[in-house]
């Protein structure tokens, strides 16, 4: 399934960004016709995923959007601790 592929991408890229890749958890939720991928990382890694003024988070979302567009889905990325 296509959403699964986007999740795999988010996981792989997040793993490369953080210090504790073992603490990455991905959950997906669905609100109306929008998929929501909830990415949670270790407390100490939140900053790395978000980045200075949210730059890294913004970049991750841009990538998720690009992939979702290609697959014809609506996907949001939420970041939690």
């Amino acid at each position: 399934m296509s959403l699964q592929k986007i999740k795999t991408m988010v996981r792989k890229i997040s793993e490369m960004l953080v210090d504790r890749p073992d603490k990455i958890v991905l959950i997906d939720e669905k609100r109306d016709d929008t998929h929501i991928i909830v990415l949670s990382v270790d407390k100490s890694d939140v900053g790395k995923i978000i980045g200075r003024s949210g730059q890294t988070a913004k970049a991750l979302r841009a990538l998720v959007n690009a992939a979702a567009t290609r697959l014809g889905e609506k996907v949001l990325l939420e970041i939690r601790e």
Binding site: L17, T56, K58, A59, L60, A62, L63, N65, A66, T69
Partner: peptide
């Protein structure tokens, strides 16, 4: 085109992520 994005925005994002990694 998808990876470049409007006015290269997605490419900028990609550059940022890859730079960090």
């Amino acid at each position: 085109g998808l990876l470049i994005g409007r006015k290269g925005d997605t490419l900028t994002s990609l550059q940022h992520l890859i730079g960090r990694i």
